[in-house]
């Protein structure tokens, strides 16, 4: 049987303790998961930004003569199309590279929309409590009860699919995680004495929230943001896969999987490659999120 690391020990201070910033930097550099995750995210972000410079072909140009060419490692493959071509003869590598842009921009956009809604509600509910808190809790339960994917599909279909609609709808349906965490954290913080000290010094609730509470929420918000980034990217891919998200000919990985599905028994790479791209991007975001959680944790586990 093991004793766990939740053990507390009132250790006396070291001679020269590190500042929070120094401590986090040191933990970050020692955290393999975080380094791998942020490495993946930075690389893919650079690919997205410089897509026109990197992509060997125009991702939209169709060519009936070169449809479904296999990748270079296949005996029939060629160096001209490293990862082959799709049903319309478009270069698959170029489409994958441009797909990074769609995934990352929708992920960032939707996670930001969710952040604005969730953090605002969470801080307000946690700080003011009472009926405000009851109302927000009720909204939370109702939101959780809504079948999110189904509603998103219906709304995107009805409103009409565009990248902005997809961002907006995914964002509006993904704020609960922010809410739950910031609400609990705000409830805890607002009962701490430094908030009472600020109030005693004449600070208004607004000043207390901006100056005392929000700075303490930032690490947790960043952690959730990275997780929500991954969740939003997967949500976009699912919608596009089901035909109610990004529409052709825009290169979205989810859409590419749907398009490759018809031929997947004979040309599995059409499905495998965009799926792996999604997997890599999301695992990068999740590793980064896990890492940030460990790095910013107050006691520093492990």
């Amino acid at each position: 049987m093991t004793q766990t690391d939740a053990f507390t020990f009132d250790a006396p201070e070291e001679a020269e303790p590190m500042s929070p910033g120094q401590l986090m930097r040191r933990r970050a550099l020692n955290h393999t998961g975080f380094l791998i995750g942020s490495g993946i995210i930075v690389t893919l972000a650079l690919i997205a930004i410089f897509a026109p410079l990197i992509a060997p072909h125009d991702p939209f140009v169709q060519s009936l003569s070169s449809r479904m060419l296999p990748p270079v490692w296949d005996p029939a493959g060629s160096w001209d199309h490293l990862l082959g071509t799709d049903q319309n003869g478009r270069d698959y590598l170029s489409r994958l590279i441009y797909g990074t842009r769609v995934s990352i921009s929708i992920g960032l956009g939707a996670a930001t929309v969710g952040l604005l809604i969730g953090v605002t509600l969470g801080v307000v509910a946690g700080y003011f409590g009472g009926w405000v808190d009851h109302a927000v809790s009720f909204a939370l339960t109702a939101q959780l009860a809504l079948p999110g994917l189904l509603l998103a599909m219906a709304l995107v279909f009805i409103i009409g699919p565009s990248i902005w609609v997809v961002i907006g709808i995914i964002g509006v349906l993904h704020w609960t995680y922010y809410l739950v965490v910031t609400r609990a954290a705000t409830q805890r913080l607002r009962n701490l004495d430094f908030v009472a000290a600020a109030t005693a010094s004449g600070a208004t609730p607004r000043q207390v929230i901006w100056h005392e509470i929000l700075p303490n929420l930032i690490p947790q918000i960043i952690v959730i943001f990275t997780f929500e980034l991954g969740i939003a990217i997967l949500a976009e891919a699912s919608l596009s896969f089901l035909g109610v998200g990004i529409q052709p000919p825009t290169p979205s990985w989810g859409l590419m999987i749907a398009e490759g599905k018809q031929a997947m028994f004979y040309r599995p790479w059409l499905v495998v490659l965009p799926g792996l791209s999604l997997f890599t991007l999301v695992i990068g975001a999740n590793l980064m999120g896990d890492g940030l959680r460990d790095i910013t944790a107050p006691e520093g586990r492990n």
Partner: peptide
């Protein structure tokens, strides 16, 4: 946990079928 969280569910389905 980290992998299962990152796998697109519909893609996992297709891979399982393959």
């Amino acid at each position: 946990a980290v992998s299962a969280q990152a796998v697109p569910n519909f893609w996992l389905g297709l891979i399982m079928i393959i």
